[in-house]
């Protein structure tokens, strides 16, 4: 649900990082937070447990600049990845303009990725939304680890529609901004189509 404020010439978009537990959603936000100029970002809010597992969501507002005189703001959210937090995930997904599925590339997490994608589709369906009608990109994270599944295989399993995808190592920051840019492009183009 994008929000256009003509008075302030601002466009606000909500982006949601989805994915299984420990896949690196929060790490994506932490990297973005550490790299952008203090003036362009707000506070990074993490509602997490004492062991740093996301409990409700992380939130990072980003103001990257203007496009043709319109201030473009992105509100980045992560969902809690653990299976039993599904009720929270549904809430955060509400009103999302774009979704990033962060997949954990490790062999032992293949099923968790598929489960998370299916969960995303089911939760969108509850809001009468479909993944193929929503700006959506995939990030194959943790590519630096030794036990990773080849990208081709992940593509077959997770990306049958051929949406934009990015390899990443969120801990080192590789691919994080590419992913964000990828989804931002889709979201802004969608907004253009609607006007």
């Amino acid at each position: 649900m994008s929000f256009i404020n003509y008075a302030a010439r601002e466009i606000n978009c909500k982006l949601v990082y989805y994915g299984p537990g420990l896949c690196g959603k929060t790490t994506n936000l932490q990297h973005i937070y550490s790299k952008v100029e203090p003036s362009t970002k707000g506070k990074l809010i993490s509602l997490a447990t004492e062991t740093e597992r996301t409990l409700f969501f992380d939130f990072l507002p980003l103001e990257l600049g203007s496009i043709r005189g319109f201030k473009t703001r992105f509100h980045l959210y992560t969902v809690p990845g653990q299976v039993f937090y599904d009720a929270s995930r549904k809430l955060i997904l509400r009103g999302a303009d774009g979704v990033i599925l962060v997949a954990d590339s490790q062999i032992e997490r293949v099923e968790a990725n598929i489960e998370s994608l299916e969960n995303l589709e089911a939760n969108l369906a509850e809001q009468s939304l479909k993944l193929d009608r929503l700006p959506f990109v995939l990030q194959y994270n943790k590519r630096d680890l030794p036990n990773v599944v080849p990208v081709e295989e992940l593509q077959t399993l997770l990306n049958p529609n051929g949406v934009p995808w990015f390899e990443a190592c969120a801990k080192k920051g590789t691919g994080v901004f590419e992913t964000l840019k990828g989804v931002a492009k889709l979201v802004l183009n969608e907004l253009k189509k609607k006007t």
Binding site: Y6, L64, G65, I67, G69, A184, L188, T195
Partner: peptide, 26 residues
């Protein structure tokens, strides 16, 4: 109706992929 929408269509909606690239340059 409204002027704002017209301005939005005339300006913002004319953006190109390059504008988005610029946004991420810094």
């Amino acid at each position: 109706a409204g002027r704002g929408r017209a301005a939005f269509q005339a300006q913002f909606a004319q953006f190109t992929d390059e504008d988005i690239e610029d946004l991420f340059k810094s």
